[in-house]
Nucleic acid binder design. Structure first.
Ligand SMILES: [Zn+2]
Ligand SMILES: [Zn+2]
Ligand SMILES: [Zn+2]
Ligand SMILES: [Zn+2]
Lengths: 173, 173
DNA sequence: CTCATTATGATATAACATAACACTATGAAT
DNA sequence: ATTCATAGTGTTATGTTATATCATAATGAG
C-alpha cells in the first residue's frame, strides 16, 4: 500500500521496449474490459507518449505523426490524448503542459484508495528538471495526509494535481 | 504547527477591502525589506490579482488594465506577474493557468519549513470548482509526508505543485 | 551629470488548445 | 443486406496563453 518510493527513476539498464509493450498490452486489456475502442490512431498516440519516460507535448506528438502519416491536425492528437486520459492510460502534467504514460496501468482495478471514479486515478509525480524524467509515485502517507486534510476542511476532492519538481537521485552526482 | 485546515474558504461576511489592503501593505513591506521596487504598475497588477479570492488569468488582468490605462501589451502584465511571483506575493495555479494572491504574505520571514529559498515558499491549494475560490493551505502532516517521500527517493525538491480541486464545504449544501 | 541598471513600451510570434462542421467507420436492429 | 444511430476521424479556422526581441524611459549610484 504505502509503496515506499525508493528512487523510482529508471535504472541505467532499463528495458524500455518491454516497458512500452507492457503498457500497450495493459491498455488493450483495459479498453477491452471497459468496452472502449483502442483504435490504431489512439494506440499509436499512446505508443508515442511512451517513447520515453519524459513528458511529451501534444505538438511533439503531432510532429512525430506528421513524419509518418503526413498532414494531421491538432484536434486529432488532442482527441486521442483526451481519450487516453479518460481511460487513465495517460496523465497530463499541468506544470509542464505535457503528457506522460500512466505508470500504474497494470495495477488498475486493484483499488488503492485514491481513485476518483472509473478509468482514472489520482496520479502524483516526481519530475527531474535535469534529466527530464517524470515518475508516478504512490505514497500512503501522502494519500493519508491529503484525505485527512480535506476531511478537516470539509472539502470534497475531485481531482489532485501533485507534481514535485527537482533533481532525481541520479542527477545529484 | 500543523495549522489544521478547518474550512479555510472565505466566510460570508468577509471584509475583502481590508484583505486587499493588508496584502498590499505586506507587499510594500516585503519588497522594501528585499530591496525590490514595487512600482505603480506592479502594485496595480497585484491589486487586480487580489480583486477576489478566485484565480485570475493574465489576459483578464490585461483587459482590466486596458480599461484604465489604454493600450497595454501582454509582456507588461506577464513581467509584473513574474516579479510578483518571484517575490512570493502571487502564486501561479498550474492546473488553471491562472494567478492568485499569496495567502500568507504576512507570515513570510517566519520560516515554516516549506521554504525553497528567499522570496517564495511552497504553496498548496484547495480549489473549489463551484464557487471558483482557491485557498492556500498549510498542513504539517502533508509537508511531512512530502519531505519524507522525497527523502526516501533521494529526490531534491525544488518546486511543489499541489492543487486539490473539488467542492468546498459551503458549496456542498 | 553620467552612466549602468532596471523597468516599461511595442511589435511580432510561438506554443498550447478547442469550436464547428463534414465525412467515415462501426456495429446493432430490422 | 439495408438502415440507422453512434462514435471516430479529417479539416479549417480560431481562441488562449506566453515569450522573444528591440526600443525607450525611469532610477539611482558614483
Ligand atoms: Zn521504460
Ligand atoms: Zn534526473
Ligand atoms: Zn478577501
Ligand atoms: Zn465553493
Amino acid at each position: 500500500m504505502a509503496s515506499d518510493v525508493r528512487d523510482p527513476f529508471a535504472a541505467p539498464g532499463h528495458d524500455h521496449a518491454g516497458c512500452v509493450m507492457a503498457a500497450l498490452d495493459a491498455a488493450e486489456a483495459r479498453c477491452a474490459r471497459a468496452g472502449q475502442r483502442l483504435t490504431p490512431l489512439r494506440r499509436r498516440v499512446l505508443e508515442l507518449v511512451w517513447r520515453g519516460h519524459d513528458p511529451v507535448g501534444a505538438y511533439d506528438i503531432l510532429e512525430l505523426m506528421r513524419d509518418e502519416r503526413g498532414r494531421i491536425a491538432p484536434p486529432t492528437v488532442y482527441r486521442a490524448l483526451d481519450f487516453l486520459c479518460r481511460q487513465g492510460l495517460v496523465h497530463r502534467l499541468e506544470s509542464l503542459q505535457a503528457f506522460i504514460g500512466c505508470g500504474q496501468a497494470g495495477d488498475h482495478g486493484t483499488d488503492h484508495g485514491t481513485d476518483h471514479g472509473i478509468g482514472h486515478h489520482a496520479a502524483h509525480f516526481l519530475i527531474c528538471q535535469d534529466c527530464g524524467e517524470a515518475v508516478e509515485i504512490r505514497d500512503g502517507q501522502l494519500d493519508g495526509a491529503i484525505s485527512q486534510l480535506a476531511g478537516r476542511a470539509g472539502f470534497a476532492i475531485a481531482n489532485e494535481t501533485i507534481e514535485l519538481s527537482g533533481r532525481c537521485a541520479a542527477c545529484q552526482s
